[in-house]
Amino acid sequence: MPSSISDLAAGASQADHPQGVLFDIKRFALHDGPGIRTTLFLKGCPLSCVWCHNPESQNREPDLMFWQDRCIGCRACVMVCRERAIVVSDGLARTDRGRCTGCGRCVEACPADARRIVGRRWSIQSLLQEIESDVLFYDQSGGGITLSGGEPLAQTAFAVALLTACRERRIHTAVDTCGHAPWTDVEALAAVTDLFLYDIKLIDAARHRELTGASNAQILNNLGRLDDTGGRIWIRYPLIPGLNDRADDLIALGDLVARLRHVEAIHILPYHRGGLKKHERLGCPSTLQNKQEAHSVAAADHGREILRGIVKVPVRIGG
């Protein structure tokens, strides 16, 4: 434990080497753990859930987002693009994403605010400044920081370094993870994490693979081992109508949680359609498109009742 401010500064400068890619920082986050928090959204995710509402988080590198409805076809972006990746046709700028390097010159040039680079590299030091600016709010409310994403385990070394620095500063740490990573990575993270918000998408292995693009074996295995080590865990379950909201799905989840000792709560996160337009802006339309229904209050309540019949811990709708 550092004994003085200068020790803290020294610690920070040692940890300053890793850089992380973040796509957002949200302050006054109220639903990502206890108290008032700052949530940091890391880029990169090993899953590709069909319902993903943060598709800009999937790629580890910065992405260009494009608001088609704002584009006025003025060619300002074409003029500044060094890669000649942009052409204007039918009054709309079209970007060859294979050529785009994400340099951001077109974003600066666009007079219509139709372009934005999502994702920025951060040093630990500069992030700590952002985090510490709200430290009085964490102190008052019992809050802290939450790493989310994307998937923090897609940038494990960076995440561990950042959480370590927060620990040194007595800032409460939480990690929102899908758990799809080697156990050693989870273990390293667990050593500096006060609370896990652990996402479970589906217990059924085959459908998990179908809907997220990956097996859930490692996810469930890591959850069990994390539970064995005694880490505090809140389970988060996105409820997607027609995809994982059958009674069987919820019973299987309840049975799993009932076997674990350190899960403190289950949060059902009802699906919302916030991600659909983002897919478009990234030039990769969602497979769900507009067919997907938003959640109904009744469905979420029903899911909660099923879980309440099985588990002893609190079950809440919403984070």
Binding site: L269, H272, G274
Partner: peptide, 17 residues
């Protein structure tokens, strides 16, 4: 506004949401 599981600026949301 509170969206679903998190809060956000109303302007940052799409029209359907």
């Amino acid at each position: 506004v509170r969206v679903a599981g998190y809060s956000d600026y109303f302007n940052n949301l799409d029209r359907p949401l």
